[in-house]
Nucleic acid binder design. Structure first.
Lengths: 213, 213
DNA sequence: CGGGATCCCTTAGGATACTG
DNA sequence: CAGTATCCTAAGGGATCCCG
């Protein structure tokens, strides 16, 4: 038996053998948003050493969780269908961990992909269905996350465009999701900065995305 | 920043900082079934070194996931309310990993607690509600798991007693849960051994517990 | 005997530099 | 840009020992 196996015939141990190594589920988290190149993954996980990223990508391939796709000139990684079924795991982990986040610290970053997953787990289709279709953008230094809400459907992609409301990406948005910072207060204190569109739309955003305490 | 932090303000990274270390979620898995003593945890995870178990218990306490309760003469560990909310995470992981289990290998063991979690994630309240209330027992060398199904409710405890059907604990039960082994065939091949009660009740068991492929 | 602590060794992970 | 190669540290693993 491989040294790092747990020696049990159990779904939980098997899952942890496949995706329980350090960094593995964070690679999955980012790939849940869309296919990514090696450099994009590295950019979304700035603290991962490149040898570890390379090792994890190989292991996740061997485990049948991701696929390496050589395209013209570039290589992209994407989740296999089996890998995509980790979405409930990642969302549940994110919802649980979100409540232990506390105050953002100086060195803690927010990446577009991590924000996308947080929004996906906070999305309330019921609330969204009662609101007009809206396009939001969260803008980061590294790029922009386009958030389209229509009826009970949510579409998250990278990119920007004409939106109803554009806000600056960052920890402030997370505070909004938990509800411990009301939209008005978030604007007042500068926790959330509106870059484009009517500030009043932030309340609609906050009704659409909410993580239960 | 601590070396083992991921440096992101994100629920997934925070969760992995709290319970992402090796063995941690397996301790949580077993505590989801009930409070356990140090020695019981060690017995349910035979390959964990005792220094690692001790270290994890301290870390999980510090993280607010478990509590150390000194009782007369003995100490037990139990999940805090926040720790109990990891149940969806553990069940989702287990359901996902279950499908990658493959054939049981000689050195892979099945513990009562891991079986309890598998049953909890496989439980189908809808199917159970249409069947008569039934008490099952899964018997292991280390002890017995008592499984009571009544209406749409499931109760899992350690212990034995008068049951309608008692089966030998082991990998065979898992094969039944996925449906790749029909009850009749499981009995025929000896994959599942009935120790007590009518063999026909195994079909009811298989209808009550099923992991979707 | 339960509930750990200690020791030593192995290996994974981290930092940095380098290459096709 | 997409990874390797190298070196070093720290975590994990295994056995043993300790203490109330």
């Amino acid at each position: 038996m491989a040294a790092r196996e747990y020696g049990q015939y159990c779904g939980v141990t098997r899952a942890l053998e496949l995706v329980g190594e350090r960094w593995a589920l964070l690679i999955v988290r980012d790939l849940l948003v869309g296919p990514r190149r090696y450099g994009e993954l590295a950019a979304g996980l700035p603290r991962i050493p490149s040898n570890i990223l390379a090792a994890r990508l190989k292991e996740l391939q061997a485990a049948g969780v991701i696929r390496r796709i050589p395209r013209l000139r570039v290589v992209v990684y994407e989740l296999t269908p089996y890998g995509r079924e980790l979405e409930p795991v990642v969302l549940a982990l994110g919802a649980w961990g979100h409540r232990a986040l506390g105050e953002p610290r100086e060195e803690q970053i927010v990446t577009p992909d991590s924000m996308a997953i947080a929004l996906r787990s906070a999305f309330r289709p019921g609330a969204a269905a009662e609101l007009p279709g809206t396009a939001y953008a969260a803008r980061f230094d590294e790029g922009s996350l386009l958030i389209r809400v229509d009826g009970g459907a949510l579409a998250l992609t990278r990119g920007d465009g004409p939106v109803d409301l554009a806000i600056a990406g960052g920890p402030g948005i997370h505070r909004l999701l938990t509800g411990d910072l009301a939209p008005a207060l978030a604007l007042e204190t500068g926790a959330v900065e509106v870059l484009e569109g009517r500030e009043a739309l932030l309340a609609r955003f906050a009704r659409t995305f909410r993580l239960a305490a």
